[in-house]
Amino acid sequence: MKIKIVLAFAVLQILTFQLLSGQRNATSENCGLPDSEPYLTGELFTPALPVDPTTYFNSEWLSGDIYLSNGEVVRSKLIKYNGLLDELFWQEPKSKNIIKLDKEAILQFHFLNFKGDTSVYFRKIKVKQNIIADSSEVFGEVIYNGRLSLFVLHTFIIERRELVYMNGIPYQKDIYAEEPIYFFSWTNNKTFITKLLNRNSLYPISPANKDKINIFLKANKPLKFINNSYLIRLTQFLSTIVDQ
């Protein structure tokens, strides 16, 4: 009986609190804000062939903020990034259609929670990938931002081709493998691009400091998979030995 009285009392308290707090919320809503979100622009994504799911940076739709080039921010949208296409996709909430967002409109985007990491940012950077081609704008994951910044471009290469059957019709399927490109950028817009992070690849950054690079690489041997903390350490080290 005693317990029942206590419980009834507790329920009464909760109800009273919610009722009175609710009054306040209702009052403020009347004078509230109209919808003020900037608009995302893009085209309906209807590829002729399905996109290989392994080429997405995030296989599931994740909530993210999109920073537009005009200074506005679109918050908490379901987004996916595809490294092969180098495109950001948005799941339009009403129709659930997949929209390929205009790259020109985006400055950077941020995954609010990527496998527990709340600091995964991608920024649009201008890259000249080879001598022949003009420079192009691509999305790079921001690994370290400082005097020397490091971005990782999540690019893919065709590793092999397999013959698969779809509805009894054979076709050749490309099997992709990720081949990250490391993009170092100094504050004076000087850049250095490499696919590998071994000694020979890093020497051109500072040919006069080959010894120091060797010592660093010996002391900080990366594991099988290069993780972000190693990349941060490496960038910090390189920024100390390179004069701008």
Binding site: F9, T16, F17, L20, S21, R24
Partner: peptide, 27 residues
């Protein structure tokens, strides 16, 4: 003991009421 429990509950109720009212008036 029982009286103490009731007093505590009444005080808690008053606190909740005041807090909710305060929030309501704070606009």
């Amino acid at each position: 003991m029982k009286a103490l429990l009731y007093i505590l509950l009444i005080l808690l109720n008053c606190f909740c009421l005041c807090n909710a009212q305060y929030k309501n008036l704070s606009a």
